Amino acid sequence: MHPSLANIGAYIKTNTLALAPAARAAGTVQGPAIDTGAFRSAVLAVAVGAAGGAPTGFTATFTFESRGSTAGDEGAPGPWATVVDRDGQTLSVVATSVDGAVELDLDLSFMGDDHDQLRVKQVLSFTGGSSPTLLTGAVLVQGGSNRLPV
């Protein structure tokens, strides 16, 4: 049996927290900077939990932003830029129901040529409710490394 079938853990990295689990109010939040290193692809796995404050609906939109770690003045990190596909479309996934999960695939070549850091951006909006919140969190699964095991 091929190792990719019996030992998938040697081919992917799953312990990168892209967005810490938390009950969040409406607005925008970004996750921490993640060094993409030798990886060539990734999957954002988002978990959506319970809603508080009795909203009648919500949308949680997840996108990616990237930057170069030393692209700015005197080796400082450069500005964050939205990651787009080859057609210039923003890569995004939208969650609209509680107690579920969504995923978003990413070819890391979509990042800028000098970009080596990635972060997740969540924009959350609600319909109705009284001070509504939504429990969300995300993990970035990375693969396609030029070395094994990852």
Rank of each mutant, 00 (worst) to 15 (best):
V98M: 13
G100Y: 01
G78Y: 11
V46N: 02
D114F: 09
G100M: 09
S131V: 06
T82N: 03
W80M: 12
S69F: 07
V120E: 07
V123L: 08
G57A: 15
T96A: 12
S66P: 02
L44M: 04
P79E: 13
T96W: 02
P55H: 08
D85T: 04
G112T: 11
P79W: 13
D116A: 09
V94S: 10
S131P: 00
A76Q: 15
G78M: 10
G52M: 08
S109G: 01
V102K: 12
T70I: 09
A76I: 01
M111C: 13
G128E: 04
V102P: 06
G52R: 10
G68I: 11
D105R: 15
A81M: 09
F110K: 12
A60V: 03
L108D: 02
D116Y: 02
F58V: 05
A54T: 14
T70Q: 15
A81G: 08
E65N: 11
G52H: 08
L124T: 00
V83I: 10
E103P: 00
L104Y: 06
G53R: 11
A71S: 15
A76V: 05
D116E: 11
G88Y: 08
A54W: 01
V102N: 04
G112R: 14
R40G: 15
A50W: 01
Q117I: 07
F62I: 01
Q89S: 12
V84N: 11
D73I: 13
G57W: 03
A47F: 00
T61F: 02
V98C: 08
S109A: 14
G75W: 13
R86T: 15
S131R: 04
R86V: 14
A76H: 13
R86W: 00
F64D: 10
E65T: 01
R40C: 04
L91S: 07
V94M: 08
G78K: 11
G75P: 12
V93G: 07
V94A: 08
Q122R: 14
A51F: 10
R67L: 07
